[in-house]
Computed example of a mutant assay.
Amino acid sequence: MIQPIRATALAPLPHGFLGREGGVSTGIHAGLNVGLGSDDDRDAIAENRRRAVAAVKPGATLVTLHQVHSAIAVVATPGADDARPHADALATDRPDLLIGILTADCVPVLLADAEAGVVGAAHAGWKGAIGGVTDAVIATMEGLGARRERIAAAIGPCIARPSYEVDDGFFRRFAEDDPANERFFADGVRPGRHQFDIEAYVAARLAGAGIGRVEALGLDTYANESRFFSFRRATHRSESGYGRQIALIGLPG
């Protein structure tokens, strides 16, 4: 059974952060792998994506992206899977669409201005996060009639600070961008290493952009193997591939 993880901040809009439970994929992709870029069986991926839509908004048309770790946001447009836009955030005001972001440690962000009838979704890896992907999706939502003071946001399952070790160069990049970013890093166990709290960083970016309600779910993809896919966990195990989970949001109707 697929049991979408829902956020109070986005209720009652149709939405959910899905993990790996309830899918048909097997092997290293076992579960609800929806990643078209993975080397999983294509028919299994298609069935998993169908199940994901059915669990959140049956009958809706799913729109996803070819994610490239950018700060690019677009207005959602239905199309062939192989013609997905190269971007990392999307927004819509169309009730017939269900927009989705894929992750496997990166930060999935779902956003909504329920009064305006506009929703958004962003994939915030560290490059996109520091580059401003959340700012971009907010601006795209505003272009559809949203107002940022009314937007609520939820941050779904992502890699947590205890699981996210980075080096000095990574730390300096964030500290040089803004010295206040040092608060998102803790000393690592090894010399020259740091533990990065990307969830808190993304939450702060949202708050700094004027989003008054930000809900962080605090779920670690790396540490919860039975629930979530994790790129870093697969890498540490020298596995040949990894699955992707999906975060979905739509409008009533």
Rank of each mutant, 00 (worst) to 15 (best):
A160F: 03
E199K: 00
C158N: 15
D96I: 11
G169K: 09
E149W: 00
A180H: 13
A112F: 02
P108I: 15
A160W: 05
A91G: 08
I101K: 01
G79F: 09
A152N: 15
N181P: 03
E115I: 10
R161T: 01
D82P: 00
R190P: 01
A104C: 13
R161H: 04
L102S: 02
P157F: 11
I159S: 02
A129L: 10
R148N: 12
G120T: 06
P78D: 05
P191N: 09
W126H: 08
L144H: 03
T77C: 10
A116E: 06
D177T: 13
D105W: 06
P162A: 12
L98Q: 01
A80P: 09
M141Q: 03
D93V: 08
A152W: 07
R193Y: 02
G117C: 12
G156P: 11
I159L: 08
G192I: 03
D93I: 05
G169H: 09
D105N: 13
A114V: 13
A153S: 08
V118C: 11
K127V: 12
I99Q: 02
D178Q: 05
D82A: 14
I159T: 12
F184I: 01
R183E: 15
P85F: 11
A124I: 15
G117H: 10
P162Y: 11
D167F: 09
A112H: 05
D135P: 00
G145Y: 10
R148P: 02
A175P: 09
T134D: 11
D178M: 12
V107G: 08
H194G: 07
R190F: 06
I198Q: 15
Q195K: 12
R183Q: 15
I159P: 04
V133L: 06
A180Y: 01
R150P: 10
C158H: 13
F170W: 11
W126L: 09
R147N: 10
D105P: 11
R173H: 08
E115H: 10
I99L: 07
I101T: 14
E142V: 15
C106V: 02
P157L: 05
D135I: 11
D135V: 12
C106H: 10
L111I: 11
G132C: 08
D88M: 10
C158E: 03
G145A: 04
N181W: 11
C158A: 15
A116M: 05
A186K: 07
D82K: 10
G188Y: 01
F170C: 14
P179S: 02
R150M: 06
I138K: 00
P95N: 01
A186V: 02
V189F: 12
L98P: 14
L144V: 13
T92R: 13
G132K: 02
D177W: 00
A76S: 08
G156T: 03
A87Y: 09
G145F: 10
P191W: 00
